[in-house]
């Protein structure tokens, strides 16, 4: 039960009748990486937004560590800290008017329990070093940073409050291939050093095998196949997974 995310029978219907999640059940164990894959419109982002509390499900239960997950504003501070998110667009996930130091500072001000004791500048530099950034970015704003740097700042901001589960919603999709690889490697490292569980949402099967322990394949708001990454990617049982894999191969995943 400890630090486990349980999603049971999650249903979300948007105004207008679009069914984004149709009875989704998922489980992410501590320090495990679950990749949720599927084409756009398959409901994977909706699941992620429900987990972090940005989207309210119509029915179904979400629990973390046995505690129910409501809308993010109603969660107790420890639960808010425990689940953090990295967004798709690295640039717009940072307020363009705030320098990096303020962005991280806001996280610590919101959760004083997570704030480092003593010298915050020192702690800030250490945190930035953890995500592979130099100390000289502290005064810069999103506009002065590259996409990869922005995403590193986003990750640092999430790590600042000591999360147990990091939800990455297409976190590398908007980046160049070379930067993508760097950020993926960073996430793999951080997962180990910070003992994180990852809920990794992506449409790109090419990155899944680099990071995932288990894979859940979504289509039309439902999970059609789930299992260990090697099995699902190596010997897919569902034809949709096979089709996704074929499409990925066509695009040259094996290059």
């Amino acid at each position: 039960m400890n630090d486990t995310l349980e999603v049971t029978d999650l249903r979300v219907t948007f105004r207008g009748g679009l069914v984004a999640a149709d009875g989704v059940s998922l489980r992410v164990a501590p320090e495990e990486t679950l990749a949720v894959v599927g084409e756009s419109g398959s409901g994977k982002t909706t699941v992620a937004r429900c987990v972090v509390g940005l989207q309210r499900p119509d029915s179904g239960t979400l629990t973390f560590d046995g505690q129910p997950l409501g809308p993010v504003g109603r969660r107790p501070p420890e639960l808010q800290r425990a689940i953090q998110m990295v967004f798709q667009d690295p640039r717009s996930s940072l307020n363009p008017r705030m320098p990096v130091a303020d962005l991280i500072g806001e996280a610590w001000r919101t959760h004083p329990a997570a704030a480092p004791p003593g010298d915050r500048t020192e702690a800030l530099h250490r945190l930035l070093a953890d995500v592979g950034l130099d100390a000289d970015v502290t005064g810069r704003r999103a506009g002065d940073l590259s996409g990869g740097q922005c995403q590193r700042v986003s990750i640092a901001r999430a790590l600042a409050v000591g999360p147990r589960l990091l939800v990455c919603d297409e976190a590398v999709s908007a980046l160049d291939v070379s930067v993508q690889a760097q950020i993926l490697r960073l996430l793999v490292d951080l997962r180990r050093t910070h003992r994180l569980a990852l809920l990794f949402i992506t449409h790109d099967l090419g990155v899944v095998h680099q990071i995932a322990d288990r894979v859940a394949v979504m289509r039309g708001g439902a999970v059609v196949e789930e299992g260990p990454a090697g099995e699902v990617l190596g010997a897919p049982r569902h034809e949709y997974t096979q089709a996704l894999l074929d499409a990925a191969l066509d695009l040259g995943v094996d290059e």
Binding site: G53, V72, G73, Q84, F87, Q88, S92, T110, S154
Partner: peptide
């Protein structure tokens, strides 16, 4: 709808802030 507002909400930043 901007991601930085979502990011602040996920962080638990109070609505007024």
């Amino acid at each position: 709808e901007r991601a930085w507002v979502d990011a602040a909400r996920v962080m638990g930043v109070p609505v007024r802030s």
